[in-house]
Structure formats: C-alpha cells, structure tokens
C-alpha cells in the first residue's frame, strides 16, 4: 500500500482542515446557543478518520461515535445537510430530530453516530455481515474510543467477527480519556491491541500521524476486502477539548492538555507537506480560505432553514 499519491495527500490534508475548521465553527455556534444539547468535538484527532476513510468508497460502511463529526466529514457527508441537522432544522439528515450525536447519511454508508458508548461496534459488524452475506466487496469500519473497549458490545462484536472472518476494520482512537477518567483507571492494559489478542484478530498501534494511519488502514481494508477477516487499529490520539464542549477538564490538569495540543496531527502533516513541497504556502492559504467559505455557507444555510413543525413530530415512527 505504502504512501499516498501527491493528489491523495492534498485531498487528505483538505479533509483534515475541513474537520478542524468545521468543529471550530461548531464550538462558536454552540457557545452562541445556536445548536442545542451536547457537542463532542474531535479536534486533535483528525488524522484517524481521514487515514481510514481515504481507503473507503461511498458503498463502504462506517458506524461512528458521539465524537463523530470527523468520520462523517471524512466519509464525504454533505456539509450543508449536516449543519442543518446540528441546528435542528428540517433540511438536516435526520429531519432535525436528532442532532450531533446521531448524524447519519445512508447514501454514503454513514450508519450513524451513536449516543451509547460502544453501541456502534456490533452494528458495524452487522453491516460487514450483510456485505459477506450478499457477497459484495464492501467493507465496514467501526470507530470507537478506548473507553468503549470496557463494554460487552466491543468484545461480543470482535468475537463474532473473528469467528466469521467478517470484512471489518475496528478503529480505536485511544485519546487516553474515557469521558473523565484516564485509561489506567478502567483498563489493565495500556494498549487496546492487547484486547484483540483474545480474538485472534491482528492488531496494530500507530501514532496520531495521518500517513502512518493511512498505511495501516490500507492493509486492514485490503485484508477485509479479500475476505481475510477483521483487523484492529489503535491510534494513539489526543483529545484537546474535554469530553464535551464546556467540560473544564479539572480532572486533567493544564499541563496534560498543553501536551496534547502540542502533538497536533494537522500541523505536523502540514509541515511535512510544505517540507516535501507537496504544497506551497499559497496552496495552503487557498485551501483554508475555500473551506472557510464552504463552512460559512453551510452555517448560513442551516440558520436560514426552518425548524420542523410540531405537527410533524408524530410522523415516521412506523413505516
């Protein structure tokens, strides 16, 4: 698999910036009170979704988490419709019914973010089961954090996928914090790869580096497509902004946060692209300016769209 092409790297950089900038914008509109409920951002973790989704087609499946904007963007979600959903508007993917924690786009295989930790893992495994059942070459990806590996859903899904050699990649973004608790409190192992041993699933741990993730994800997706079964990839990720936006992270200490921020997967990638002359400074500026405009346009669209009518609340419960 090796390194991505120059064009692919530019595409990956663009996707990472898009995730970063979209979530920065979301933090802003969340603090204005324009979006409701809870908001969980993945700033600092952009490398993992981009690294894996660079190998997926629209037909492939991904089930994500409460911290799932990045995966949805990397899988190609329409930003206007996604923003409308976050604003609770009828034009949103879920008709404004569900918001950030349930972002889904069936047309691109995005099976939904999930408000329940670990719940998406067996659901994605079911998508892989369906692909094998129908003898397609589709692959499924389950994303989750290290906190989810304490859930039975994680173990039950991996066990079944290994028995049946299902075409799935388990992508664990280990950001070191299960909500408000460090991994040392909730796991006897410090790498999630050890969990996979019990299921005879090949597992690898990689740094928060998009090219490294790209390479390992490529091997895993290929294995899955060839019918060789599941792989687990652990990305040693960094969470900058707490469990949810507004979490003061008092349990963590400023130094720990500063260390996390210093390991900026986006900035590191950008530096590398500049050094290797894949991109010039002007290219980077243009990508950033273009994305600012795209995100502003999505926010404008979401603001202007109407909310669902109260009379529509009872629609669509049963088919």
């Amino acid at each position: 698999m090796g390194k991505p092409s120059k064009e692919k790297m530019i595409e990956m950089y663009r996707a990472m910036v898009k995730i970063r900038k979209t979530e920065q914008k979301l933090m802003e509109v969340f603090s204005n009170g324009e979006i409701l409920g809870f908001l969980h951002v993945s700033i600092g973790q952009e490398a993992a979704p981009v690294g894996i989704c660079s190998h997926l087609t629209e037909a492939d499946y991904i089930a994500t988490t409460h911290r799932g904007h990045g995966h949805a963007i990397a899988k190609g979600i329409d930003l206007k419709m996604a923003m409308a959903e976050l604003f609770g508007k009828k034009a949103g993917y879920c008709l404004g019914r569900s918001g950030s924690m349930h972002l889904a786009d069936k047309s691109r295989g995005i099976m939904g973010a999930n408000g329940i930790v670990g719940a998406g893992i067996p659901i994605a495994t079911g998508a892989a089961f369906a692909a094998k059942y129908k003898k397609t070459d589709q692959v499924a990806v389950a994303t989750f954090g290290e906190g989810a590996t304490g859930e039975g859903a994680f173990h039950e899904a991996l066990n079944f996928a290994a028995i049946k050699k299902l075409p799935i990649v388990y992508l664990c973004e280990n950001n070191g914090w299960a909500e408000f608790s460090p991994m040392s409190i909730h796991a006897p192992v410090q790498s999630v790869t050890k969990r996979a041993l019990a299921y005879d699933i090949p597992a690898v741990s990689v740094a928060n580096d998009v090219l490294e993730i790209y390479e390992e994800a490529g091997k895993a997706v290929e294995r899955a497509r060839k019918g060789e079964g599941p792989t687990l990839i652990e990305v040693r990720s960094e969470r900058w902004y707490g469990h949810y936006v507004g979490d003061a992270q008092k349990y963590r200490g400023k130094e720990n946060v500063a260390q996390a921020m210093a390991k900026d997967c986006l900035l590191n990638f950008e530096k590398g692209l500049l050094e290797s002359k894949v991109l010039k400074k002007q290219d980077i500026e243009k990508i950033n300016t273009d994305l600012d405009a795209e995100i502003e346009e999505a926010v404008r669209f979401a603001r202007e769209c109407p909310y669902p009518e109260v009379s529509e609340m009872m629609e669509g419960l049963y088919l």
Binding site: G126, F160, I163
Partner: peptide, 26 residues
C-alpha cells in the same frame, strides 16, 4: 450456516449485529 447462523452466547452482540444487517438490506 450462512442463513441459519449459530452465535456465541452474546445476546447484545448478535441483536445489534442483526440491526446493522437489517439497515443494510437484510
């Protein structure tokens, strides 16, 4: 065995798996 599927003792796992499979057309 592809259509009559024996599972490990894991009610949560195989029920959610069925949910995923159902959302993908089964």
């Amino acid at each position: 065995p592809d259509r009559i599927v024996d599972t490990p003792i894991s009610e949560l796992g195989f029920t959610s798996l069925a949910a995923g499979a159902a959302s993908c057309g089964l």
